[in-house]
Simulated assay, not measured.
Amino acid sequence: MDEIIDLGRLDMDPSRRSVLGVGLFSVALAVPAWPDVVGRMEAAQRGVRTRIGMSDVRTVAAMTEQLSSLDDQFGGRTARPLAAAFLVNTVVPFLRTVGPDDVRRAMMSAASDLCYLTGYMAVDEGLHGLAQRYYLQALELAGASEDHLTFCTVLRGMSVQAVDLGQGPVAMRLADAAAAASPQAGPRMRAFLAGQQAHAAAQIGDRRSALLYLQEAEVAMDKAEARGKVFGSYDPASLSYHTSQVRFEMGDVHGAVAAMEESDRLRYGIYRRTRVKERAILAERQLATGHLEAACKTWGLALDDYPQVNSGRIDKRMADMFGLIRPHIRNHDAQALYERARETVRPELVPA
């Protein structure tokens, strides 16, 4: 509990947030296994309230959902201080308050989900050491509440963080751990897990496993979609993204472009931050295949939404864009994009 308070207070205080960048991603992080944390109920420490009920659990779950929506639309930099403040000022006191065992478990499960989301927002800002600390707290709370779904989701999120940093072996280990911890997963969850296993396997050069996992994800997605579409869960747009990443890791850049275009076409409009980030990735790959004008158009679409999103990952993509476009600056489209970007992105990203 003290670790959650320390994390949240540091994260919500603007005067101390510069300290957060010190922690780096650790490839040797000790990740607890499900048997190590399951049922670990902490002794209740009495807070201001005398008891908690299911209405308090619903409050935490509803706020987490709203914070997730803010993150989707406006980026982690915007939403994370709000999440940290809610965690410290509301959720921790709930966790320290007595209540029936089923309510306590439900509250720890809800708190786990919020810690995971806050860690994901830290990833979006590029604060990878901080994100890992939030993720570990989420795993502890998920185990204590016997919440298999969140436990697996957190492990998968840690795998996503690792694969995006080029740490393929770590990403594979975490993706496999997530799948092993969820033996009773339904088809949508299985697609969610297998898609990440495919990406990690492709990054470590295990082509056979990558294709098998991708096929498994596709079959599972077909089954899930046949049961009904579910907004806010792993969906065909997400699977197309994983298909693109697998193809790219295996050297099929043209196939990666086609799959990323499909992902962009299928994505719900509310996911603005993801749309900007993945359009920037698509543009980079279009340029790599020699389609300069198409790349400039896609980067232009990303710039349309950029002012509304505050994201470290997107800022890095935009900074990279300047370097990629500069050699083509005599091209009319490239020059127009370059000048527009100089007027649109944050000043510190513009090359001197």
Rank of each mutant, 00 (worst) to 15 (best):
E140A: 14
F94R: 12
H128P: 05
R330A: 14
L349P: 03
V27A: 14
F248C: 01
K229C: 00
S311Q: 06
Q196A: 00
Y134F: 15
R80E: 14
S68L: 08
R188L: 12
S55K: 14
E125N: 07
G53D: 15
A336Y: 05
P327K: 09
H328C: 10
S55T: 15
R346L: 07
Q73L: 10
A185H: 04
P35F: 12
S109L: 09
Y134S: 05
G23K: 11
V309Q: 06
S233A: 14
Q184T: 14
V38M: 09
W299V: 05
R40G: 00
L282W: 06
P100W: 01
P347I: 07
L165P: 04
G39K: 12
V219C: 04
G168E: 05
C115P: 02
L149C: 00
V98R: 10
L174R: 04
A43K: 13
G8V: 02
G269R: 11
R208Q: 14
E218Q: 13
R227Y: 01
F322I: 10
P81V: 07
M107S: 08
E261V: 03
Y213I: 00
R207E: 13
W299K: 08
G99L: 07
S240W: 03
E225A: 05
V27E: 15
F25C: 10
V88A: 14
D206P: 04
M221G: 03
L95S: 04
V257P: 02
V37H: 05
H199N: 05
K316D: 11
D333Y: 10
Y120D: 13
R77A: 15
A283G: 13
L24Y: 03
L155Q: 07
A336W: 09
V154A: 02
R273V: 01
R275S: 13
R247Y: 02
M121I: 11
L95F: 04
F231Q: 14
Q184I: 01
E339I: 11
R313W: 03
M54N: 10
F192S: 03
